[in-house]
């Protein structure tokens, strides 16, 4: 049996006694590519916070697989307006991803610098190294944040709507890049996604959240399910977005 990366067991996440996600159970296997989809307000981002350990479940448990430390989960956030205008070089941003291995020690060592350089190389953005983060295009910025998350991650990265606001071509490219990483580097990918077609096209598993239930399975199973058909139909009417 494959080892699991994350196991959610009857998880309920709530804000002020209002359950946002309730009684959710699923397992992310090592090497999995999971996309979490669903309409706005169904708790996708809250679930992400739960998986990151930033929010404690009010009941149930979220267990990380053997050998995975909380601090070794990579995270690619939704972009905030603060970041879009942040004066920092790509190198500074990527290097900051290695911070979790530094502890209290100031500065960055040779090991951290090598790691950051390696990840820039891996994502093909070495030439952006000394560019300013705020001068990049949306797609480049996401690659930089992905590189940073890979500096922090050993096995698992979580992404929260990383392609929001990107054009379809760049989005498609980004999903492909993730698939590459997933296959070649054996990195487990868990992503909240708005781009339904791309998610169905690339993911191994789909977790669909709706107001009162959820669906977990492969994209094919999802597309065949009643919930999936209803959701996909609605998305088509709006150009592929929920």
């Amino acid at each position: 049996m494959e080892q699991f990366c994350i196991q959610c067991d009857h998880v309920t996440l709530s804000y002020e006694n209002q359950a946002v996600v309730s009684d959710l159970s699923f397992t992310v296997e090592e090497g999995d590519y999971l996309c979490i989809i669903g309409e706005n307000g169904t708790g996708k981002s809250t679930l992400m916070k739960g998986l990151l350990g930033l929010k404690k479940p009010s009941s149930g448990s979220i267990v990380l697989g053997e050998g995975i430390l909380r601090s070794q989960i990579g995270y690619v956030p939704q972009q905030t307006p603060v970041q879009r205008d942040f004066p920092a070089s790509v190198w500074e941003v990527v290097l900051s991803g290695t911070q979790n291995s530094r502890g209290w020690r100031p500065g960055y060592g040779k090991r951290e610098k090598e790691l950051a350089g390696e990840k820039l190389e891996l994502l093909g953005i070495s030439e952006l190294r000394s560019k300013s983060f705020r001068d990049l295009s949306g797609g480049q910025r996401q690659r930089v944040l992905l590189a940073r998350s890979l500096c922090a991650a050993k096995k698992l990265i979580l992404l929260d709507e990383p392609t929001a606001g990107l054009d379809p071509l760049v989005t498609e490219e980004f999903y492909h890049l993730l698939l590459d990483l997933n296959r070649s580097q054996h990195i487990t990918v868990v992503m909240v996604s708005h781009a339904i077609q791309e998610a169905l096209g690339h993911a191994d598993h789909i977790l669909y959240l709706s107001q009162d239930s959820y669906f977990y399975g492969t994209p094919l199973e999802y597309a065949a399910s009643r919930a999936g058909q209803r959701f996909l139909k609605r998305c088509k009417g709006k150009g592929g977005r929920p």
Binding site: L54, I73, T80
Partner: peptide, 17 residues
């Protein structure tokens, strides 16, 4: 370096421990 990390992206910093 820590202050940079917290200023640039507090959520990421927190999530990575």
């Amino acid at each position: 370096e820590k202050l940079f990390a917290v200023t640039f992206d507090e959520t990421f910093a927190k999530a990575t421990g």
